[in-house]
Design a protein around this nucleic acid. Structure first.
Lengths: 188, 188
DNA sequence: TTAGAACTGTCAGTGCCTGACGCTACATTC
DNA sequence: GAATGTAGCGTCAGGCACTGACAGTTCTAA
């Protein structure tokens, strides 16, 4: 009964999140996920590259938003301000996905294998940001460093946002970048 | 013939590096490593938690050096200068291990699974640096952010050092931190 | 000599992931 | 309306990473 294809993918994601929250990531075989979704284990691997990959589906969208914001920054904008603006531009995406992201974040934090993958995904975003900066004539090595640093700053901001929602994500981002500026001023 | 234990561990590391360089990481089963080292696959897993873990053995030493440098920084030293000094203190460690690190670095760069693990190891170092800063009364959230940023800066420096050894690692570190300071000054 | 610790081998087993093959539903074309 | 193509899926077989349990060996210390 080969139905829609997209439906099976959705069922698999739902089943996986349920089982992971019930029993933990390492304690749920892919076979169990597939069974709850009504498909075969083999079908699971036709929709997802591997067991960890399910958690990181929206990454492509986030990357596009960030890269576009960098690309469209006014000419003459310095790298770090451009990066900060890009993260501000991605805030709606975080806010929209928050109810879905939050339980997943706890699961990732509790599962080393997922933390590794999350870091790898972040590295891919950094790579995309680096290239977007290079397209703006930023020196490649400087671009790489600053993309990394800005990504960390944004990650710190979203982390604080999870713990303290009394401030908006915009405010957390600005706070974090301000701390970065003040701390860097103490160099040399 | 159960000899020393430490000898087997060393043989396993040598055999693994050879086979990985010959055939690639993904194309060399643990069984082959064990066979070349003259032991069983099971023994491999008694010496290393998993196949990827062999590459990251000196990490403990590096962590200790960094943490000690942070701890022993003169009172009143600001966080980023303290972190920069810590990385300078770890330079001899990098220089000593360079001939061993360099072929490994290319292998890591060519193997996604190893990149993930390398990022995870970096995250552990960042965590240790964060705690060392907190012990110096740095605000926990600021400590976390700056440890991350400093680690990225040092990583960028070592990466440049691999590509361009005409400058010392000390100089690359200073250059990278200077770029960070200049870029951050453009914020706000 | 004996007791114990450290190291290893052997065996069985789980789980992730892949390749190859064939089937079925659906869309397209003539 | 029949032929063709395509996309999604099931089934089977198999490789490889990793683990638990048990037994045998060497070396050391009492």
């Amino acid at each position: 009964m080969p139905r829609s294809g997209e439906a099976a993918r959705r069922r698999l994601k739902e089943a996986a999140l349920e089982l992971f929250l019930e029993n933990g990531f390492d304690q749920t075989p892919v076979e169990a996920i597939a069974a709850r979704a009504g498909v075969t284990e083999r079908t699971f691997y036709r929709h997802f590259a591997d067991k960890r990959e399910m958690f990181f589906d929206g990454e492509g969208e986030l990357r596009d938003v960030l890269v576009q914001a960098i690309t469209e920054a006014p000419p003459g904008t310095k790298p770090l301000p451009a990066l900060r603006a890009a993260f501000h531009a991605s805030v709606p995406l975080f806010e929209r996905n928050r109810p879905l992201t939050e339980p997943g974040a706890r699961l990732i934090a509790a599962t080393p294998a997922l933390q590794e993958r999350a870091l790898a995904k972040r590295a891919l975003l950094v790579e995309a940001l680096t290239q977007a900066l290079q397209a703006r004539q930023v020196d490649p090595r400087v671009a790489s460093l600053l993309a990394q640093v800005a990504m960390d700053t944004c990650a710190a901001a979203t982390h604080r946002w999870m713990l303290d929602a009394s401030l908006s994500l915009h405010e957390h981002i600005d706070h974090a970048f301000r701390e970065l500026r003040l701390a860097a001023a103490a160099l040399k």
